[in-house]
Amino acid sequence: MTDVLFWIMSGISVLSAWRVFRTDSMVRAAYWLMVSFAAVAVILVLLSAEFLGLVLLLMLAGEMTIMAVFMVMFMMNPAGLNPMTMVHQHRAAIAAGVLSFLGLGAVGVFGRFPAGVSFATRDVTARLGMELLNDSMLIFQTAGVTLLATMIGALAIASRRGRYGLADEDSIEPAVENSQNAGEGPPSTEKGSA
């Protein structure tokens, strides 16, 4: 039974991961990614890493929705009403993807792992809790402090209201135009007045 479920979930996770880059609708792309992650979370639960899988699910609901919202805000054509592909170095990217799959897959198939170890027992969650708050407390706390620093950093980068007024006031125009101007000298209007 577990095996059947595992095969189904593996199929879902890989197929929906592939759909992420094959759909025109940005919202669908974000939610295909969520489906892929959810399948991975279910596999983790099947592997009896229950807490980990559920935390992954808890996290990615918010994460993927925020991703979808960002897509709608920033992208042209977010609903995929007009088909388009936005890719560069496509062949090289495919080659890199296939190569890394083959390399990692080879490690998985030909690597030798300590086998014959039984599945973890039922009180995995309790043992994880004891580990987190006993021996590995420092690692756990470091993760927490990292997240705090991330929050502060992200706010500092993204906040529009800086100490000296709005962050984007009097900011430089797009660099593309800047470099062109530098090459051609001052713009023509100033030439006339000089």
Binding site: F51, L54, T125
Partner: peptide, 9 residues
């Protein structure tokens, strides 16, 4: 065993 986390998810 992680029912509360499941519910939150």
């Amino acid at each position: 065993s992680s029912g509360i986390v499941y519910f939150g998810a």
